[in-house]
Amino acid sequence: MRLIIVSGRSGSGKSTALDVLEDNGFYCIDNLPASLLPDLAERALLQTELLHPQVAVSVDARNLPSQLQRFPELLAEVRGRHIQCDVLFLDADEETLLKRFSETRRRHPLTNENRSLAEAIRDEAALLAPIVDLCDLKIDTTHLNLYQLRDSLKLRLLNQPAPGTAFLVESFGFKRGMPVDADLVFDVRCLPNPYWKPDLRDMSGLEAPVANYLAAQPDVEEMYQDILGYLNKWLPRFAASNRSYVTIAIGCTGGHHRSVYLANRLGQALKPVLKNVQVRHRDLG
């Protein structure tokens, strides 16, 4: 059996996550009281007509605070029954959450006559702290539209050809913000920038002219070898510590040339060594 617990602040994309999981064969339950997690897992295990039952539940700030405080012990009880359980936490910055609620005119579940929307968003983060501290995968949806979020969820949650730690090598541009869900971040802005070559500016690091230009730069090769050496040494130790997900972020200024080239090259080099390596370019397209 596989159980995915979806949590996060309101407006971060939890409904989208449940829709994606439901479309991919999961039985989904929205707003489950956290105290029912062990019973739900036990009942799902007893559904013998399902060879590999897949269940996803949303547990969020609509729960009683006392139940959210018990989340660590409830999760331990579920996992003690030898159930594969992943905790997904979605979030976005406060400005983005405020904008989303203003655009949709939805009511935040924690607002009332004594609590403004901004206060509710901040209070929600404190309520969900017991969950975010134990999440296996955190996705920042600040810069993701609906379709990008769907693609990201499919890549991280559903595209796992082998059991064990799922590694994501992700390129990004610092000008759009550093990914808050990254476990390791490498800044490559010190390298020669193809942006200043007029014939390369409109291309990406996936295209041969840019790749050839960067491959010919000694500093780029030295940076690549240093990062690859570090990852080859330490990523297996991340896997040995039973981490479900590890994100390695490679950042340049715009996220189109240097970081894309290096992320793609590093991902290809790591795939023969590690079982489950994925590559994503956050700011392309």
Rank of each mutant, 00 (worst) to 15 (best):
T96E: 11
G255W: 00
T142V: 12
M1D: 07
G164H: 05
I29G: 07
T96I: 06
V57L: 12
Q84C: 05
N112Y: 13
G255A: 09
K233M: 14
D226Q: 15
N264T: 13
D91N: 08
Y147G: 05
L262E: 05
R258Y: 04
P209L: 10
P72I: 13
S204Y: 00
L74F: 04
P192M: 04
P38C: 10
Q278G: 10
A118T: 03
N114H: 14
F89K: 01
R176N: 08
L88A: 09
L231H: 07
F172D: 01
G25T: 05
R105L: 08
V220Y: 03
S102Y: 09
V246Y: 02
P53T: 07
Y213H: 15
R107H: 14
F174A: 01
T142G: 08
R105N: 11
Q84R: 06
R115E: 12
V220G: 05
S171W: 05
H256W: 13
P163E: 06
N276L: 06
V279D: 02
Y213I: 03
V188F: 11
I29K: 09
E222P: 01
M203I: 05
R115T: 15
K99N: 13
Q84D: 15
L153F: 13
N232G: 11
G11Y: 00
N276S: 11
Q225C: 09
G80M: 03
V6L: 07
S66L: 15
G205M: 02
K233I: 06
K138W: 13
K99I: 03
L32Q: 01
G205C: 04
Y213C: 05
S244M: 11
S10E: 00
G173W: 01
Y245G: 00
A76Y: 00
P53H: 06
A162K: 13
P194F: 03
V260P: 03
I139P: 02
T48C: 11
T247F: 09
F101S: 02
N242G: 13
W196C: 10
S10Q: 00
L50C: 13
R189T: 10
K197D: 14
L18V: 05
M178A: 12
M203T: 02
E113W: 10
N63Y: 12
Y213G: 04
E170H: 02
P53W: 03
L64Q: 12
P65Q: 11
P163G: 08
F167C: 03
D226S: 14
